[in-house]
Every structure is written in C-alpha cells, then in structure tokens.
Design a binder for these strands. Structure first.
Lengths: 121, 121
DNA sequence: GTCATATATATGTATTTTGTATATATTATA
DNA sequence: TATAATATATACAAAATACATATATATGAC
C-alpha cells in the first residue's frame, strides 16, 4: 500500500479527516450534522469560522476521491450536501489506522510518564 | 488558569511541544538528545530538515519562557544547548494534561468504532 | 408580518506551521 | 585525511489554521 499523501506523523487536520471519514463510513452524512457528531469524540466545532474550515476539509476529501456527494433536497430547510464514503476512502481509513493506534500508545505513555514525574515531587 | 495561548484543540506541533516539555521536565537535555528520546514515544525525528524544525520549536519554547537554556561545553564534541524546564513550563504542562487525556479518550473511541464498523461487514 | 434563531453551505485572507533544503562547526574513527 | 556522527541553526515555499464574513431556507416567538 503506497503512502497516498506525505502526511501522517500524525495530526490535527489529518485527524479530523479520519474522524470525518469514519463517521461518513458509518453512515452518509452532511457537514452540519457531522459537526454535531464530532462531539461523540469530544471534538467541538464551535467558534468563529470553524464550520467554514470543516466544509473546506470535506471539499478536499471529495477532491481526493475519498468521498462522493449527493444533494438532499427532500428534507425541510436548506439543501444538504450528503457525503458518502468511497472504496478509496475506506482504503485510506484502513491504511491510517496504524497511525491512530500509534497515537493511542504514544498518548498513554505520555500520561503514564507525566504521572510518574509528579510522584517524584 | 488562563489559556496561555489560543491553541489546543490539540495537535501536531502542539503535541510535540508537550513531549519535549515532559522530557525536559524529567531531565534537562539538548536538541539532539531530545530527538532520540522522542523515540520512546514512537516519534521519529528523521527526514530532511526535521531537526531544523525541532530546534525552532525549542527556540520558541524558550522565547515563551517555558524553558531556559544553558550551554554545555564540558562534554566532547560540539557544544550542547541544554534546555531546563521553568515553573511556567511546568504550569503549562500541567494545564495541557487535560487536553492529552481528552485526546487519549478520543483516540480510544476512534479505534473502538472503527473495529465495530468492520465487524458489520 | 417581521424578527430572531436554528439550520445549512461556502469563500476570503492574514497568520502560523510545516516540509524541504541548506549552512556551519566539532570530534571520533577508519 | 576523508568520512561519519554529533550538534545547532536559518531560509523559504507550500500548506494549514484562525478568524471573518456572505448567503439562503425554514421555524417559532411576538
């Protein structure tokens, strides 16, 4: 499996992409809803302009072929741009899992060592 | 406790800062050595220019008063710029721990949900 | 009816961070 | 006397982020 992109040491925007891809893989969804679903992970999209950045990331995921889109005009309210995962998107997500698991370990170690440091004092 | 800076949703550079501060808090150290100690956390500083970026982050930590420095010319080889944690640095680190713990939970949830997703298929 | 709010998507831009490249100097060892 | 390992540092283009704003549809309060 090639590297797709030169990313993933791994962080921020790169994480957000993964969370979005996972949510979309679970069930097709749209920007506004995704921003609320991110709360499940403890990620808050609030603050000025945050939504704008989210939409931009979604657009780029589409441009890269990780998701495709479909307008939903059935529901009441403004039209929704529904994002649907692609095979490439699923592949990318699977490929990225090793980074996520590494991050998990890294973070655990960090907490452990910080606690050990404080015990000494 | 105020926010120190407008960062920390939390990622990349911001993480690296914390790992560096923890390592320095454990024991004063210098750039080159820190780059090797980061491996304990699974973080590799290799590739072109990576060291340069590391030094830049260390300089900024110093500019912000989180660490202070001292040149070590005792050892053989090129002089070493020893970084020592400050009280503000320790405070910043403590303040940041909540973000780290959040990230830990977030990552755990991500792995769980990815595995659940794959069971369905 | 119109005002505020929630829902929904999107673009512009200055600042910050990153990736990549490079410069420089000291010591050990082959 | 090369070469590699040790050690720090700056320059710059590209990418990402924070912050600001524009636009439109529907619902509920008044």
């Amino acid at each position: 499996m090639p590297g797709f992109r030169k990313r993933f040491c791994g962080l921020r925007r790169h994480w957000l992409e993964l969370y979005l891809l996972l949510l979309i893989a679970e069930k097709p969804s749209y920007g506004y809803e995704l921003s609320t679903k991110l709360k499940d992970f403890g990620i808050m999209i609030s603050g000025i302009g945050q939504m704008g950045n989210l939409y931009r990331i979604l657009s780029q995921l589409e441009a890269e072929g990780f998701v495709k889109t479909d307008w939903d005009t059935q529901e009441s309210g403004p039209a929704r741009k529904i994002y649907i995962i692609t095979d490439i998107g699923l592949l990318f997500l699977r490929d990225a899992m090793s980074s996520v698991i590494e991050m998990e370990k890294t973070t655990e170690k960090f907490v452990e060592r910080y606690e050990k440091l404080n015990k000494k004092d």
